[in-house]
Amino acid sequence: MCSATSLPVLSARQTKDLLPISLLCQALAAAAEEYMAGRIRSPERQVLPLQGEGVLLSMPATAHDIGMHKLVNVCPHNTNHGLPTIHGVVSVYDAANGRPLLILDGPTVTAQRTAAVSMLAIQSLHSRSPQHVALIGSGKQASGHLDALAELFPGIRVDVHGLDLASATEFCRQHAELGLVLQPKAGRIADEVEVVIMLTTSKVPVYNEAARADRLLIGVGAFRPDMAELGPLSIAGSQLFSDDPVGARHEAGDLIQAGIDWSTVSSLADAVAGRFDADRPRLFKSVGTAAWDLAAARCALANYSSSGATDECRG
């Protein structure tokens, strides 16, 4: 409980509990339409230097109901000191009067909304609930996506392709309690896989097979122009979607390096609305935007308020 003068500051665990993937997907679907229509304003993120190659990332967004500001510090050398690489907070405000309402854990918001965007892409662009998914990558993004898959599609088979078979095997062991059929893999993606999700920071393609109408491709990890998880063969044969087509022009290295025609890239809102050809292959590129953090803030605020914990704080 909080007093009238206190501001709730939530831990990573508390933040995650307020962002169940199913509800977050609903919030993202609504926000996607608002963002495309200009009713959510989300400027390009500002990047400022910190010591030791670290950066401070500032990402605000506003809508009719709330404002949100995500501040995240990424410090790559923290691992040498036993500290997380990423720290940060998401502050949530009442749009009518600017009053602060909630402070959420920044890395948790990012992880949850990123995984939820991928799940929304699956729900929108795949013809049915998948029974066989492949993850390429075995880091924190892969963990978040595995949690999301377990929540929405319990019991399905998930092949995990890590740096090597040993790392994939260890990753599967660590997530054995999720209730998924986890299979560590090395080499080529199995023919029967329906959805491939790429979650690496590779600078060379980790997937470059011919596009297939029965296999949805989702690229998440490559977030700079010099990174590329998806190869030109897969890209050239696909209908292209991005959660943020404007931001993708600067950040989606896969698409930039492939020299695509940006006028052919559709939005997440288009995918949610079903504006695509189901008989043609589909590829979804996720780059992220503060608009999705705002959707997550809405979801968290609604769930926090429904618990009764904020009645005194919100007035």
Score class of each variant (00 low, 15 high):
301 L>V: 08
208 N>D: 15
67 G>I: 01
134 A>D: 01
309 A>L: 12
155 G>V: 02
167 S>M: 02
186 A>F: 09
32 A>F: 11
154 P>A: 04
51 Q>R: 14
41 R>W: 08
3 S>I: 03
279 D>S: 14
39 R>H: 07
121 A>T: 06
256 I>N: 10
299 C>V: 02
310 T>F: 15
281 P>H: 09
69 H>M: 12
89 V>N: 04
295 A>L: 03
288 G>Y: 11
257 Q>G: 06
204 V>S: 13
307 S>D: 01
12 A>F: 00
131 Q>K: 14
204 V>N: 08
169 T>I: 01
91 S>L: 14
238 S>F: 05
271 A>G: 11
10 L>S: 00
12 A>S: 11
111 A>G: 08
34 E>K: 13
58 S>I: 15
287 V>R: 13
302 A>M: 07
165 L>D: 03
199 L>Q: 10
70 K>T: 10
150 A>P: 07
23 L>I: 01
94 D>M: 01
245 P>D: 05
211 A>Y: 12
36 M>N: 08
21 I>S: 05
12 A>D: 01
303 N>T: 03
277 D>V: 10
276 F>H: 12
123 Q>W: 05
43 P>N: 06
68 M>C: 13
64 H>A: 15
7 L>V: 08
31 A>F: 03
45 R>F: 12
143 S>T: 12
232 P>G: 01
27 A>D: 13
199 L>A: 13
30 A>W: 01
313 C>L: 14
250 H>T: 14
202 S>T: 09
228 A>F: 01
97 N>V: 09
280 R>C: 13
240 L>P: 03
182 L>K: 15
35 Y>D: 06
12 A>Y: 00
193 V>S: 08
71 L>G: 06
253 G>E: 13
148 A>D: 08
238 S>Y: 07
265 V>R: 05
294 L>G: 06
240 L>G: 03
168 A>M: 06
297 A>V: 02
96 A>P: 04
282 R>Q: 11
246 V>M: 07
56 L>W: 11
56 L>N: 05
32 A>D: 06
228 A>G: 02
217 L>S: 05
246 V>Q: 15
178 L>Y: 04
262 W>A: 04
230 L>Y: 07
293 D>F: 07
83 L>N: 12
34 E>I: 02
224 R>P: 09
194 E>P: 02
263 S>P: 00
14 Q>L: 01
179 G>T: 10
252 A>M: 10
10 L>H: 00
164 D>E: 04
241 F>P: 07
167 S>L: 08
225 P>T: 08
280 R>T: 11
204 V>D: 06
120 L>S: 12
285 K>E: 15
177 E>L: 12
40 I>L: 07
285 K>S: 14
226 D>I: 11
81 H>V: 03
259 G>S: 07
134 A>Q: 08
160 V>D: 02
78 N>G: 09
244 D>G: 05
287 V>K: 08
135 L>N: 04
130 P>F: 14
191 D>E: 15
45 R>L: 11
104 L>M: 05
219 G>R: 07
271 A>V: 05
93 Y>Q: 09
75 C>L: 13
228 A>Y: 02
255 L>R: 09
25 C>L: 03
279 D>K: 11
194 E>V: 08
